[in-house]
Design a protein around this nucleic acid. Structure first.
Lengths: 157, 157
DNA sequence: TGATCGGAGATCATTATAGTCTCCGATAGA
DNA sequence: TCTATCGGAGACTATAATGATCTCCGATCA
């Protein structure tokens, strides 16, 4: 459950790669093209191209056309959150269809729906979590993410 | 992104309904059948039946056959977590395919994969969150769930 | 003993996902 | 200025997941 798509997966790998090269010790500032990433991680080239185009459209990376072209991070790795990356590929976070319902829309269950509000709370918590972790945190770091919930029951599974 | 399935949605609604009737003021202890829930929330009867059967198999509710039959919670609402409910319907939590890879399996990217470890951390945090909220919390209560992360950058969107 | 329940399997339609193919425009460098 | 190399974009296909339906069975209570 709650699986992210392969495309989102590829986006995370690609951005991690770009960030590590761009801010690494070996060839800092080097522009990275799609083919390089596709071969390194065994990702279908044209599918990865779509992913990078989406990331570019969403302002996470900047593209450079022509020979020796490719991509660079549009801002520092510490300013790019997991939430931003995933949303660039899969659209806004939403546990249910009614998460982003506009006024005109409605679901059949809405009238007696008893779970919308609590689910929105859970959703918000997940969003905070995904937005608190950055690309920088994903690179070698071991971010210590903890959850505090007064309603914790300590139930084991 | 991270949407739960309609079936999981139905499971949450159904369990909330069963819990509220079973422990409510009006007719406590009453057995609730599939048809009642399906009509109340406009859920396709036979699809809801599948959902409830799955919940029964996973030990969250107990079934009673025959006329006047139906379902009851198998334990108190405070001992049934959101994680348990969702996993009963959608299977184990896993952001990526490699979340539950056994030793024999592997993904093409595994060799140079740079995101597996951090994603497992995120996944674990989400699991803690979902496992800290119970069916009881979903009923009228307003559980205050907060996230604390040292890597928080305060990035707005 | 029959109407009312849940249990279970097969089946189908629709949608989402993953991946491919083709053509276009930009550009750096010969 | 020509050309190979890059990204941008649309159409397209195949496969898998989801949502929903249908049918038949066994249990059980009145």
């Amino acid at each position: 459950m709650l699986k992210i798509s392969k495309k989102a997966d590829y986006a995370l790998m690609a951005l991690q790669h770009i960030a590590s090269v761009q801010f690494g010790d070996v060839t800092p500032g080097r522009v990275i093209n799609t083919k390089e990433i596709a071969e390194e991680y065994h990702i279908p080239l044209e599918l990865l191209a779509k992913v990078l185009q989406a990331l570019s459209k969403n302002g996470l990376i900047e593209s450079h056309n022509g020979p020796k072209g490719g991509y660079l991070l549009a801002r520092s790795a510490g300013q790019i959150t997991i939430a931003q990356i995933l949303e660039s590929i899969e659209g806004p976070l939403g546990l249910t269809d009614c998460s982003h319902e506009k006024d005109g829309e409605f679901c059949m269950q809405r009238e007696h729906c008893n779970i919308r509000t609590p689910l929105l709370k859970v959703q918000d918590s997940i969003y905070q979590l995904l937005n608190s972790m950055t690309l920088h945190d994903m690179m070698g770091g071991t971010p210590l993410i903890t959850i505090q919930s007064p309603s914790a029951q300590g139930v084991d599974r």
